[in-house]
């Protein structure tokens, strides 16, 4: 979120309305409001593990933006790219990147007609 977006956000919590992750866990820390709090505060205070927990627990569906009365865009994709640049990534993500580099697909070595050994959820 850039500074302008940060200033617009009042932490009203309306972003939780249709957030699929929040709806499932009913815990503030899994919802979009924590992402906004984290972006408003100094992110340098948070550990890599904490940053990963905040920004990876998101489907990037933008339901938060749709419900925001102040039209704030949390821009989670951008935050994730920044994290990946710093080497903060899920284990599944890391594995898939290795597979793509090595075999040209995210599922690893797969023969024609063969079922995938493992499905990933990033």
């Amino acid at each position: 979120m850039n500074n302008n977006e940060t200033d617009k956000c009042t932490l009203c919590g309306m972003c939780k309305t249709n957030c699929p992750i929040y709806k499932n866990y009913l815990t503030e820390s899994m919802g979009p409001r924590l992402k906004a709090i984290a972006e408003k505060k100094n992110l340098n205070n948070l550990t890599d593990q904490e940053l990963s927990a905040i920004f990876i627990n998101c489907t990037i569906c933008s339901a938060c933006k749709k419900e925001c009365p102040n039209d704030v865009d949390l821009n989670i994709s951008k935050m994730r790219s920044e994290l990946i640049k710093r080497g903060i990534e899920t284990d599944a993500g890391k594995e898939m990147i290795i597979n793509i580099r090595k075999y040209g697909n995210p599922f690893g070595k797969v023969k024609k007609g063969q079922k995938f050994n493992k499905l990933y959820c990033c």
Binding site: L11, L34, E50, A53
Partner: peptide, 13 residues
């Protein structure tokens, strides 16, 4: 009592 939960519940609207 995790830091993230404490941060989440430290504020409201």
């Amino acid at each position: 009592d995790s830091r993230l939960d404490k941060l989440s519940y430290s504020t409201d609207a």
